Amino acid sequence: MNAAGIVRQTALSDLVILAPFAIPGLAPLYLDLWFGLDGLLGGGGIAPDLGPTGWLLVNLFGLFAVWSAILRLMGPTVLVARRAALAKLVAAIIIAVGLMQGAAPVFALPLAADLGAAVFLAWGGWRGDREIG
């Protein structure tokens, strides 16, 4: 798969997985699903009460994730693949820090996904310097 395909694939995955966080009212239900999975994986399984400010931040996070995915879908270049690889690596580091500080074990799943995506994007992004489309 070329870099454009890799950028598109990871952007579509992010869109599907993260878009529910951008929608007020749906985000709490979606987070409950994540924490249900957390319970199945041996974690506490109970979503935290985030309050209005917390949900505002969750919705904004979701919006920026959706916007990032849309931008990557609109312009999948080698440079975009490289930048997305770096962003995924930084996200994985942030998640790892959260896990070390006691975040719910379910977040090991996006940690693994972001590390995998970073490698996948880096592989596509460092294969060539030409624009792709």
Rank of each mutant, 00 (worst) to 15 (best):
A3I: 09
G5D: 13
I6W: 12
R8A: 09
R8I: 01
R8F: 03
Q9M: 02
A11Q: 00
A11V: 03
A11K: 02
L12S: 03
D14L: 03
V16R: 09
I17S: 14
A19H: 02
P20E: 07
F21T: 09
F21D: 05
I23D: 03
I23H: 07
I23N: 07
G25M: 11
L26M: 12
L26V: 15
A27Q: 02
P28I: 15
L29M: 07
Y30K: 01
D32T: 03
D32V: 00
W34V: 03
W34S: 01
G36N: 04
G36A: 07
L37M: 07
L37G: 03
G39N: 04
L41I: 00
L41A: 08
G42N: 05
G44V: 04
G44T: 08
G45A: 02
A47H: 01
P48S: 13
P48Y: 07
D49Q: 14
G51W: 00
P52L: 14
T53A: 14
G54P: 01
V58A: 06
V58D: 02
N59C: 15
L63G: 14
W67T: 10
W67G: 01
S68G: 04
R72M: 04
R72S: 09
M74N: 09
M74Y: 04
P76Q: 08
P76V: 09
T77P: 00
A84Q: 06
A84H: 11
L86C: 08
L86A: 13
K88I: 00
L89T: 15
V90S: 08
A91R: 05
A91W: 08
A92W: 10
V97H: 04
V97Y: 11
G98T: 10
L99K: 13
L99V: 05
M100I: 14
Q101W: 11
A103C: 05
A103E: 12
A103Q: 14
A104Q: 07
P105R: 15
P105F: 12
P105M: 14
L109M: 06
P110W: 06
A112S: 12
A112W: 14
A113I: 12
A113H: 13
A117N: 12
A118P: 03
V119E: 03
W123Y: 13
W123F: 12
G124E: 05
G124H: 12
G124C: 09
G124S: 11
G125L: 11
G125T: 12
G128D: 15
G128V: 13
G128N: 14
D129N: 15
D129T: 15
I132C: 14
I132S: 15
